[in-house]
Design a protein around this nucleic acid. Structure first.
Lengths: 127, 127
DNA sequence: CTAGCATCTCTACACCCGTAGACTTACTGT
DNA sequence: ACAGTAAGTCTACGGGTGTAGAGATGCTAG
């Protein structure tokens, strides 16, 4: 069961778990419902699938309500996704992706200065 | 039919079209086959779907062989994909994605210096 | 204690996508 | 001219995914 990938919706739910640490299906449902119409059972199905994939695990109950904790870690999910994305969209070359983001996406002066420092660090490391 | 998104495989084929400009199904098949086993008819199906989506168009024939040209442009496909990816995986925040790539992906000194210059340009623009 | 509601569980379904076989058709070399 | 083959067309199918209903079940307020 290693290397299980997450669907879009599953990832969306994991993002919420990573933020809240612990959450129940009703909570997750209420949060997602603010953005778009979705039935409780739909959300619960996704959480069930996450549980089957061992991405989350039951931690405790309050009455009938089951609480879950994220098991898969953000970094462990994101890293392969980034690699895949770069392969898929940029033929494995990260430089043009980074350049594109810097040029096209909204970055504040603070963001830029931060990224400059990250680059400086990296350069030091390479030399 | 605007805003048609491409599947993984469709995107893979488009990448080849963007490189070759003009290509036939047999050519594309031969290229992909070098990487993994896939039947001709599979590749042809993908090209047919790309044609239906107006991502490629027939340009000419040589005997029975149909040649196609890419119609969708690389930038027009990539830009929304990047946006989606940042939303999906980084909750819309591009800075941590860029930082991650700089730290984790392989970049040469030349890449880094190039990206530094891109950042410098961007900073100028913002001030 | 009971009615009603919230939550859980289980099942289902349609769509997309990767995959490819079967069949047709038109070149090409002898 | 014809056989063989390469290319094209058409159809199909299973798995993953988003979606949700139906039914069971256990809290909770009155």
């Amino acid at each position: 069961m290693v290397n299980m990938s997450l669907s879009d919706f599953e990832l969306e739910v994991m993002q919420i778990f990573w933020q809240l640490k612990e959450a129940s299906a009703p909570e997750i449902h209420k949060i997602i419902e603010k953005k778009r119409a979705v039935k409780y059972s739909t959300v619960k199905t996704i959480i069930d699938r996450l549980e089957k994939k061992a991405a989350v695990a039951r931690s405790r109950s309050e009455g009938r309500i089951i609480f879950y904790l994220p098991v898969m870690e953000k970094q462990n999910v994101r890293t392969p996704l980034i690699k895949e994305f770069i392969n898929r969209v940029f033929l494995g070359k990260s430089r043009p992706l980074v350049a594109h983001i810097i040029e096209q996406e909204q970055l504040s002066i603070k963001d830029i200065e931060y990224l400059e420092s990250v680059l400086r660090e990296k350069k030091k490391e390479l030399k």
